[in-house]
């Protein structure tokens, strides 16, 4: 048996980042293939209560490093804490969420542990023969995919972007071990001082950076209809866009226009509602990873390029999807 699959659990202000739960789901799969344990490493101050959530989502063990100097993330503090425990326990694998914090921490930890790190993996698996971790990631602006391994150094490390894997459903009957570990950290270890942390949720309006886009066309029929699309987008953590027809009709702003005279997008999910799919529109969205089209007309060009083409009235189908999504979220929530 190897020495564990680790997930570095990220919390900010005592709130777990969703990507940590997504990683636990994947770590569980990988650990099962290795017949090994999943360990979550949780750094912070007065955060032990988060341990049970990590266990519900797949951790067998939670290592809690609770220290006032770890209250807020600092490169030096967190690198020291994680490297010391990793050097003691020698894990086989470490996964880190590719947030602005994880992408600061990951390479620093990898360099200190003298091991490799593969950034922004979209696929993780175990090689049947060598039992090495196979890390697949896009390169060259997504034009090519590469599978990378780290054969001779341990731990094998990867970061994964939020939203790449799904959050496993919580199982409140799962049991796990919570272990408090004390790591000596002094003020002098932390060379970058935090003067101020400012929270400001910038509303995402750049449709080219959205992971999920719900887009409406002529078939939406009126401005009101876009409120329904917004509701769907909110459920999926995405934003609303439109075709040229929708923009010209004044139902949505010009900076949300997808297509040749608008913007080219390649989100993970593109839901086209009442869009027939003129060639100019297709040029702006056909590189999307997964396309759902909802249209009354099964012969509309958009239906031919969609991964999932729903023949139907958006005013009937979209409310049902919203209802379904809400029900799914409720079933997965941790009480």
């Amino acid at each position: 048996m190897s020495k564990g699959v680790w997930v570095i659990a990220e919390q900010r202000d005592g709130i777990l980042q969703k990507v940590s739960l997504e990683l636990l789901g994947k770590a569980r799969e990988i650990a099962n293939k290795l017949n090994d344990e999943v360990t979550a490493v949780l750094c912070g101050y007065k955060i032990q209560n988060l341990s049970k959530i990590l266990i519900y989502h797949g951790a067998d063990k939670v290592i809690v490093i609770d220290n006032e100097l770890l209250k807020n993330y600092t490169t030096d503090g967190y690198t020291k804490a994680i490297c010391e425990i990793a050097l003691q326990r020698q894990p086989e694998i470490i996964f880190i969420g590719a947030t602005n914090i994880g992408r600061d921490l990951g390479p620093r930890v990898a360099a200190r542990l003298r091991t490799g790190l593969t950034a922004d993996c979209t696929g993780l698996d175990i090689d049947d023969e060598t039992k090495n971790l196979l890390m697949t990631r896009p390169a060259f602006g997504g034009n090519i995919m590469a599978t990378i391994e780290c054969p001779n150094n341990r731990p094998q490390m990867s970061t994964v972007r939020p939203g790449v894997f799904s959050v496993p459903c919580a199982d409140e009957n799962r049991k796990g071990v919570i272990e408090k570990v004390d790591i000596k950290i002094s003020e002098d270890d932390i060379r970058v001082k935090i003067l101020e942390i400012v929270k400001s949720l910038k509303e995402k309006i750049d449709i080219t950076e959205a992971d999920v886009i719900v887009s409406g066309g002529r078939g939406v029929g009126n401005k009101e209809g876009f409120k329904m699309l917004k509701e769907l987008a909110d459920e999926l953590g995405g934003i609303v866009a439109g075709s040229r027809a929708a923009v010209d009709s004044g139902w949505i702003d010009k900076d949300r226009q997808v297509g040749q005279t608008g913007k080219t997008v390649r989100p993970k999910l593109y839901i086209a509602c009442g869009i027939s799919g003129a060639i100019q529109h297709l040029a702006g969205m056909q590189e999307s990873e997964y396309i759902v089209a909802i249209n009354k007309n099964s012969d509309a060009p958009i239906m031919a390029i969609a991964d999932l083409a729903i023949v139907g009235d958006i005013y009937k189908v979209v409310p049902e999807i919203i209802k379904e999504l809400k029900a799914y979220k409720l079933s997965c929530e941790v009480k």
Binding site: V192, I194, L195, E196, V198, K199, S200
Partner: peptide, 12 residues
């Protein structure tokens, strides 16, 4: 330093 949900001001 930019964060997803804001920024932090740091001294080094």
């Amino acid at each position: 330093r930019a964060l997803e949900d804001g920024y932090e001001v740091l001294s080094v």
